[in-house]
Amino acid sequence: MTIEMGTPEAGRLGDVTRVLAQWQHDDVPVQVHPGDIGWFWRFGAERTARATRTWSRGAELLAVGLLDGPDLLRLAFAPGTLREEELARRVAADASAPGSGVLPAGKVYVEAPAGALVRDLLAEDGWRSGEAWTLLRLDLGAPVPDPGVLVEEIGPERAHEWAAVVRASFDGSTFDGERWHAMAAGAPYADARCLLARDRQGRAAAAVAVWSAGPGRIGLIEPLGVHRDHRGHGHGRAITHAAARALRELGSSSVAVYTPSGNTGGVATYLSAGMERVSERLDLYRDTP
């Protein structure tokens, strides 16, 4: 039976993320997480479905891709399939062909797990190493330090305040309360929490969303931001501790985050919170007319 690529209907996207959650284990390379799709869901279910690609053999889901922007494909593979040749060749061919409905012509990027055969095949086809990303992880088997600041779990009535901190944390962000509600309506948010840290004067200083993949599996931080007016006071470390504690309560085995290696401040914040630098991974890119 041949491997087929598809785009799920919005109503079936929850089924895809539930299978994807089952792939998140500490003994496999960190890859696209249900939380990545959950964060993308801020743009609505229909747009999220259009940005999702699946590769299946019959009814068996083998790989999931998220078009995290029109020029970036992020990939995840079912356990045991990282080096499966037929699957890798099909994914590589679809990623490389501008007419396949995956990536357009021009400069495009693929992010694939460490050790995946698709990385080797793309490199053989002329794809080059691109931006470096640092993976950090914290084992949640032991208790996590108290954040030391007031941390609140945010619900619909405070979505605007959480959104304002996110906007003030990332240059160019347009995140608002409406997008929070869209994100919270997505299937992955059933296993997610949004947290807000305040300074001693009660001002909102830092925000984070954490995504569980279920008990005994890797949890994800996406996003984490400190308001530009509150940096340099330990709020990043505090909200990281709060995120880890929340995922531990949800039963996650560990917490992971990927951040650009050039984001030295972000990397330093995660390290100061006790996370360990696990590895550095390069994405791949090609540039065609």
Rank of each mutant, 00 (worst) to 15 (best):
A187Y: 00
H181L: 14
A184K: 02
P188V: 06
A204S: 13
G202S: 14
A182G: 02
H181R: 00
R200M: 14
G216R: 00
G186S: 13
A197E: 11
R217G: 13
A206D: 08
A190F: 08
R217F: 11
D191S: 10
G202H: 12
M183Q: 10
P215G: 05
R203C: 14
L196M: 14
A213Q: 03
A187M: 00
C194M: 11
R198L: 15
A213C: 06
A206N: 04
C194F: 07
A185L: 02
R217M: 08
V210H: 01
M183K: 01
D191C: 10
D199P: 11
S212V: 08
A190W: 05
A207I: 05
G202I: 13
R200I: 15
G186W: 02
V208N: 01
A190K: 03
A205K: 05
A187N: 00
P188Y: 04
D199V: 10
A185K: 00
Y189P: 07
S212Y: 02
W211E: 07
V208Q: 01
W211R: 01
G216M: 03
Q201M: 14
A204L: 11
W211F: 11
A190D: 12
P188W: 01
H181A: 14
L195G: 07
R179I: 09
I218W: 03
G216A: 10
A187S: 04
A207F: 03
D191Y: 01
R217E: 09
L195P: 07
R200W: 15
A185P: 02
G202A: 12
M183S: 02
R217T: 13
R179E: 11
C194E: 09
Q201N: 15
A192N: 03
R179W: 05
R203H: 14
W180P: 00
P188S: 03
A182I: 02
A204P: 08
A213L: 03
G214E: 12
G202Q: 12
R203W: 14
S212W: 05
L195S: 04
I218K: 06
R179N: 01
A207G: 06
A192K: 02
C194V: 13
V210A: 09
G186Q: 03
R179A: 13
C194A: 15
G202T: 13
D191I: 03
V210F: 05
